[in-house]
Amino acid sequence: MRFSFTNFARIGKWSQQFGNLPERYIERAMNQVYWKNPKGPQYKPNAVLQRKKFKMGVHRPWTMEFKNENMPKTYSPKIFVEPIREWSYFRGDRVEILVGKDKGKQGIIKTIIQERNWVLVEGLNCKLKNLGKDEKKDFEGVYIQEEQPLLVTTDIALVDPSDLKSTEFEWRFTEAGEKVRVSARSGRIIPIPASVEETIDYKSKSTYREQPKDTTTDVVTEITFEPKLCTFEMDIMEKMGIKEDRVPPKSYWY
């Protein structure tokens, strides 16, 4: 049974992109249905009680961490997210950090969290996180560096490739009709990095390694369709040598 997301926070396109999962699976993994009406004339159809508001943090909706963060009957305060007309920051973009202890440093975008207007920049804006601290066993635990999210609206700026300094930009069209980001200072095109295509399964579509159960490209692209004046069932019956000459009795549709 599937329930649509119509009035929920949708998962942004660029947040999903790296995970390379079907949207339908994300819905299924994320949904928390507490009650749904059984089928029958005495019940109002499609009445569903389910969680509508989710806390959208750094964890992806299909992970266990997300489920733990959104346990049933746990609620988080309302979060205001600034509306953005078009998403312009992609994986692999070089950006300069404008706030915090790494202010002025440049880094590469690693993760996009579109629902919060967040990005994680590789190795920058980090916090130390303690793992496995155990006072009973007198173990101090291990510290790891963890990137903290940065707001795309105020905390980062794209870097102009001509002089490697931060710049404002706008979306424009080239003469060929291609949509590009143009640096406001130098007028140079800021190219969209090749790693936009990258997902957890492959670096680019052309370098994807076929798995044993995958259908190979030549089989998929082979054209075997031939137009014929018959329905699917008639064609299959003909191919399998099934002959049907019984006349159905009179019937009524209502």
Binding site: Y208, E210, Q211, D214, T215, E222, F225, F232, D235, I236
Partner: peptide, 21 residues
């Protein structure tokens, strides 16, 4: 267990009825 993506409609339109069956 790694797998590719699902079949889409454009690819299936190239296939004969027997193949789809």
């Amino acid at each position: 267990v790694k797998t590719g993506r699902a079949w889409n409609k454009e690819e299936m339109r190239l296939k004969s009825n027997t193949d789809l069956h």
